[in-house]
C-alpha cells in the first residue's frame, strides 16, 4: 500500500505521425482531487484513456496502487476497473436501459447483485445526486443534459470506488447546473474519500473541484501546483490559459 494511488511515468502515445503524449509524468494520492487543465487537442482525453486502460501507451508505465497495469489484461484489469469510477464527457449512458439500470449496471452485470437489491441501491445513489426515485424508471433520452450528467455521476460512484475520473464534467451545461455538478463532485469525492482526476478547461470548475491543478500542453505536464496558486503560477502558458487570453505563447486552435 502506498499513498500514491495512480502514477503515470513517461507515458507516450502517437496516432500515426501525430504524437499526442510526449512523456507524461503525473501521480495522484489517495483522497486527493487533481484537476488537469489544457486546451483542446492537448492530449487530456488520450491521457485519461491510457490511465483507464482503454488505450495502451507506446512508451512509459502506469501504476495503480503500486501495481504496474500498463499492459494489464483479464482479471488484473477487471480488478483495477472495479475500483475506478468514470464520468464521461457525454454522460455515455446506455440508451436502451432505464436510468436505474444504468446506475446499477456494474452491480447487475459485474458484481452479480440481485435485481431488486441493485434497484434499491441505484435509487439510493440517485438520491445522493439529488434525483428522485421517479427518474429511475425513465430512459436517458427522456431527461435533460444536466440530469444525464448527474445519472452518470451516480453510476460512477455506486460501487464506492477508490479513484474517480471526470472528463469535462461541466461541458455543455448552463453555469448554474455546472456549479451544482461541481458541488456534487466535491461532495461525492469528499464523502467517499476517493481520489479524483478531473480534466477540464472550465476554470471555475477547476478552482472549485481541485486540491491541485496541473496543466497539460503539447503532450507534457508543464506545471503543477496547489489550486490556489494557479493564478500566480509564474508560468506564461498557465497564465495565458487561466486568464483566457488569445495573445501569448499558446496559439489559439483556429
Amino acid at each position: 500500500m502506498t499513498d500514491t494511488l495512480l502514477k503515470l511515468e513517461g507515458v507516450e502515445k502517437s496516432f500515426g505521425k501525430n504524437q499526442v503524449l510526449r512523456g507524461v509524468d503525473i501521480d495522484v494520492a489517495r483522497g486527493q482531487s487533481l484537476v488537469i487543465i489544457g486546451g483542446s487537442g492537448s492530449g487530456k482525453s488520450v491521457m485519461l484513456k491510457n490511465a483507464l486502460g482503454l488505450m495502451t501507451p507506446d512508451k512509459g508505465r502506469i501504476f495503480f496502487d503500486g501495481e504496474d497495469v500498463t499492459k494489464a489484461t483479464g482479471k488484473t484489469r477487471e480488478k483495477m476497473r472495479a475500483r475506478i469510477g468514470m464520468l464521461f464527457q457525454s454522460g455515455a449512458l446506455f440508451d436502451s436501459l432505464t436510468v436505474w439500470e444504468n446506475v446499477a449496471f456494474r452491480l447487475l452485470n459485474s458484481e452479480g447483485t440481485r435485481r431488486k437489491d441493485a434497484k434499491e441501491r441505484a435509487i439510493e445513489t440517485l438520491k445522493k445526486v439529488r434525483l428522485g426515485a421517479d427518474v429511475g424508471g425513465l430512459y436517458p433520452a427522456e431527461i435533460s443534459g444536466g440530469m444525464q450528467k448527474r445519472v452518470s455521476l451516480a453510476r460512477s460512484i455506486i460501487s464506492e470506488p477508490d479513484l474517480i475520473f471526470f472528463d469535462e464534467p461541466t461541458t455543455g451545461l448552463d453555469p448554474i447546473t455546472a456549479d451544482a455538478i461541481n458541488d456534487l463532485i466535491r461532495e461525492m469525492v469528499g464523502g467517499l474519500g476517493a481520489a479524483a482526476v478531473t480534466i477540464t478547461h472550465d476554470m471555475a470548475s477547476a478552482r472549485k473541484i481541485a486540491d491541485e491543478i496541473a496543466m497539460l500542453f503539447e503532450g507534457q505536464i508543464i506545471w503543477r501546483g496547489p489550486a490556489k496558486d494557479v493564478y500566480a503560477s509564474g508560468n506564461a502558458y498557465v497564465d495565458q490559459f487561466v486568464n483566457g487570453r488569445a495573445d501569448g505563447p499558446i496559439q489559439p486552435a483556429i
Binding site: 484513456k49 483507464l52 486502460g53 482503454l54 477487471e78 476497473r81 472495479a82 475506478i84 468514470m86 464521461f88 455515455a92 449512458l93 446506455f94 449496471f105 456494474r106 452485470n109 459485474s110 453510476r155
Partner: peptide, 8 residues
C-alpha cells in the same frame, strides 16, 4: 468505453 470501464 463506458461499458469497458464498468468491467463488462
Amino acid at each position: 468505453d463506458a461499458l469497458e470501464t464498468l468491467s463488462a
